[in-house]
Design a protein around this nucleic acid. Structure first.
Lengths: 342, 342
DNA sequence: CTGAAAGCGCTAACAC
DNA sequence: GTGTTAGCGCTTTCAG
């Protein structure tokens, strides 16, 4: 049986109160006593029981990572993992631990946000995967606990949002194609009701308009972000359009780019020689495809890191709730051909 | 503030002891009292505080997923995610929650396994990513807490291991190539001190020997499982060997297969027309490469699911510690060409 | 069947 | 500075 605070107290010849204060670096402990206690604690291999700690203390509560839809979507494995790596990177650097909870739209109905937090003594949470229609989106602003949402915009006094400037990033991506002489561009669209889709669409519109190009239903392939849909979508598209009606595919995600390339190859066309394709997300997998895909890197790991950082600061009162827009990076790889003579 | 057991007790006109018993489905509670308590609890939106619970109870302790090296390796994102999905799938189906802890070889030195478990009231753990040289490998057999290790063999009374029959699987993979007429095969080897490498090597030996083929340093490319090493390794290989000294590359992992294919393509060779390549792991990414890679699917998600299942049963006393060998699946895709005339 | 009461291991007031 | 003590919210004897 591991040592308790009582064991340490006995061995150090003090009471548990003193041990607690010494180990928590309270000022009002004699320097010698403190050192003795710390030595004894080390010798006994004592580490405070975190359950007891967060039970008794008011402000030693925990940080949670709440993942919604983790079990549902089978596509973006990279995404959550990179996010976690960023978060746990921060946690590891600051010796804090982060409790992870997997929920979905259904369980949100069964257990309220407040209940969840209460149940696990959660002081603040990082939330990812929240749909704008999810119950927790309404619960967050009402709660007094600070939180950080990633890629979901929720407003509230104690709520921070970490996002990308999706509009600007997608605009940039479209402009990248246009700059390389592409004027017949097909947009491979993601889930219509997703906010990210809306924003990326807006970015595309912006870029198209600025360059005198048109974006109509005729040059949009609609999907729900699934690779297979891009695949069939491209095939459908070419049933209705000639081969030279398009020179580039502007995809709202990397998986869609992968599906698009797959379809083009299956048709016997080459990328980027015959058609250019760009993705969006910066998934690691875009490095392993052929060709490697030009994409917008969302710096997902950094997103996680910053989310943890921000929440940490909010809980410590050193930073206010804020909307943090992280930089994106256009990563040039091999999936785009310039149509402009050098 | 959320409701406590006291609120429920007051509202139901009983004492907290009775509430506790009722809500935990003890037999010795009057059916009417029980129902009243349950109704009141529901009305109040009461959920027991898990911290308090695991503090006070002797057997309501928690299940942990302990991931070692999560922050270190940047390559196998898929792996941990699929594993987690399997584990959380089981957890979700059985309404248990699983605490995740990220450690590494260094932190194992700082905090013993027992300490970790004590600190977080962990009754049993699933451990993944453990190196055979890691401190926790020695701590596990000494501990009285049941645990399940994944892909690391540790013996002990309360220890279950979940593995693949790596030897047989790799043998099968090698035989697959041989069956298709390949006799000049280069093995792309993983980290020498990893147990999985040893086993896969043994599998390759078996198959080679059975078929009168030789496996020597001359036809092995050594790596540490990094994609780039396969890439340079293949280039090195062809500096010392002729182009037709080999027809197939037998890789110990999918990432190595990806690196191998990349190198071959860079040389202007085609896969599978000029060279066949097989991988191992069954990562999702092998579906998105060109060609799609023939590989051995480890059914990682299932591994996670079974690990959680097994630990759950061990904790409930319904299953003993055991060595569970999960089935693997050879997934035929497009990276192998048969040299045998139909 | 239910109530009363003793803890689980810790923090935080409040004495001294 | 340090000891004492009252909880945190719950489970679990032990009476009755």
């Amino acid at each position: 049986m591991a040592a308790t605070i009582r064991d340490v107290a006995k061995a150090a010849g003090v009471t548990i109160g003193t041990v607690s204060r010494a180990l928590n670096n309270y000022e009002d402990v004699n320097i010698h006593t403190r050192e003795r206690i710390q030595r004894v604690a080390r010798e006994l291999g004592y580490t405070p029981n975190q359950m007891a700690r967060s039970l008794s203390s008011k402000h030693m509560k925990r940080i949670a990572l709440i993942l919604s839809g983790f079990l549902e979507d089978t596509m973006l494995n990279d995404f959550e993992t990179m996010l976690m790596k960023g978060i746990y990177q921060f946690a590891s650097e600051h010796s804090i631990d982060i409790a992870m909870y997997v929920i979905n739209s259904k369980t949100q109905l069964e257990k309220s946000y407040e209940q969840l937090c209460y149940e696990y003594n959660i002081a603040g949470a990082i939330l990812f995967g929240l749909k704008t229609t999810d119950p927790y989106c309404e619960a967050l602003p009402v709660s007094s606990r600070p939180c950080v949402t990633i890629d979901t915009e929720v407003r509230g006094e104690h709520i921070s949002n970490i996002t990308l400037d999706d509009v600007a990033a997608f605009d940039e991506l479209a402009q990248y194609l246009i700059d390389r002489g592409h004027r017949r561009i097909v947009l491979v669209h993601g889930r219509k009701d997703a906010m990210v889709s809306m924003e990326r669409l807006a970015g595309a519109y912006q870029a198209f308009e600025r360059n005198g190009l048109e974006l109509t239903h005729d040059n949009i392939i609609y999907t729900n972000f699934h690779r297979e849909e891009a695949l069939t979508g491209v095939n459908e598209y070419f049933k209705a359009h000639s081969l030279d009606s398009v020179t580039a595919f502007l995809c709202m995600s990397d998986m869609l780019a992968i599906g698009t390339i797959e379809a083009l190859k299956a048709m016997g066309r080459r990328v980027p020689e015959d058609y250019s394709v760009v993705g969006y997300d910066g998934l690691e997998v875009t490095n392993y495809t052929d060709p490697k895909i030009t994409t917008v890197d969302q710096n997902i790991k950094q997103k996680g890191y910053e989310a943890a950082h921000l929440l940490y600061d909010m809980l410590n009162g050193t930073r206010n709730a804020q909307k943090l827009v992280l930089p994106h990076t256009l990563v040039e790889r091999g999936s785009v051909k310039s149509l402009i003579r050098e």
